[in-house]
């Protein structure tokens, strides 16, 4: 088990290094190849030559690539200073970069927005896991019936309908028409009730999409598991059906669900771009969209790194949970 843990951690570190390398390459090396001066990307084409030169010095864009990468890495772990002449800006660790648009380091911008995204993803995940798994199981147990077909049709619709459709429609109905819920984001610290009211629609909309996928996945897995020999053995022992389903079948059904959940949650940390945009939630996704619009490269880079990191870490957690669930992983 310990060896497994060490092996997994080692793999995670390696993956993160690759992610950093690739991200760095995309933002700093590829522009050079294509003849675009990164400095102009940072300040915009209209800027005068002097400003560009200042940026270039600050970012060390004239240094060899290896040195640039080293500085970038060091910044992530130890922080760094951007110096141009007498003008020095300190960016403390973890330094994801420095936004010249906003004239501040990236990390605080990200951490400001992270809670919004986490709140959205966490709440929605809770809803969709419960909803999706329960309907999936019921569907599997009642396969072929009207209930099964109806649920699966709704699930198919859920997967197909985009959030900017369901989101806008639900906003129009429940917020603008009926005025049951708030249509603005309020910080939890300011007013928990209002926060909750503002989050209900985003949660439900986002969860609906995912719940549909989870219901289909759970149903398919459950049907497969119910056909396993060990389920027949469990019944042959004289166990009650709820025990057979709840204990024996559920344990195996949860494995693939967990895998997908880990990846989905990891990806959502980077921001549920559509949901946040639709509901005007000041989360990471919205920040990314804004940054793309403003061509604020350091912010895009920061969000990218953060998302990649979250996915990798979520996968690690899933792998560890696997070991807890499945003795064959733990003991081999």
């Amino acid at each position: 088990m310990l060896a497994y843990l060490i092996r997994r951690l080692f793999a995670v570190v390696l993956t993160l290094m690759v992610v950093i390398l690739v991200t760095f390459g995309i933002f700093f090396i590829i522009p050079k190849w294509t003849g675009v001066d990164p400095a102009t990307m940072y300040v915009g084409k209209q800027s005068d030559a002097q400003a560009i030169e200042a940026i270039r010095q600050k970012l060390g864009l004239d240094d060899p690539i290896v040195v640039q990468f080293w500085d970038f890495l060091r910044g992530l772990f130890m922080g760094r200073d951007y110096t141009s002449g007498a003008d020095t800006v300190h960016c403390s660790a973890p330094c994801f970069g420095y936004s010249f648009r906003n004239e501040q380091p990236i990390w605080p911008v990200l951490t400001d927005r992270l809670p919004v995204t986490l709140g959205l993803a966490g709440g929605a995940a809770l809803l969709w896991v419960i909803g999706g798994v329960v309907t999936g199981i019921v569907s599997a147990l009642k396969r072929g019936t009207i209930w099964d077909r109806t649920v699966m049709t709704v699930a198919l619709a859920g997967v197909s309908l985009p959030i900017y459709f369901t989101g806008v429609v639900s906003l129009a109905i429940f917020s603008y028409q009926l005025d049951w819920v708030s249509n603005e984001y309020t910080e939890f610290g300011t007013d928990p009730a209002l926060w909750f009211s503002g989050m209900i629609l985003p949660w439900v909309t986002l969860a609906f999409l995912y719940a549909a996928m989870y219901a289909r996945l759970t149903r398919a897995t459950m049907l497969e598991v119910l056909g396993e020999d060990y389920i027949r053995t469990a019944r042959a022992k004289g166990l009650r059906e709820p025990v057979v389903i709840g204990k024996h079948a559920m344990r195996s059904t949860m494995t693939p669900v967990l895998t997908i959940l880990g990846m989905d949650l990891g990806a959502l940390v980077g921001g549920a771009i559509l949901t946040e945009t639709t509901f005007s939630l000041p989360g990471l996704g919205q920040a990314a969209v804004a940054a793309i619009g403003e061509r604020d490269l350091p912010v895009i880079l920061g969000v990218t790194l953060l998302t990649a990191g979250a996915v990798v870490v979520a996968n690690l957690i899933v792998d560890l949970l696997y070991a807890v669930i499945d003795p064959r992983v733990r003991l081999s």
Partner: peptide
């Protein structure tokens, strides 16, 4: 049952 590996719950 025939196949004792699949007839026992692996977990």
């Amino acid at each position: 049952f025939q196949d004792p590996l699949s007839a026992m719950h692996p977990y």
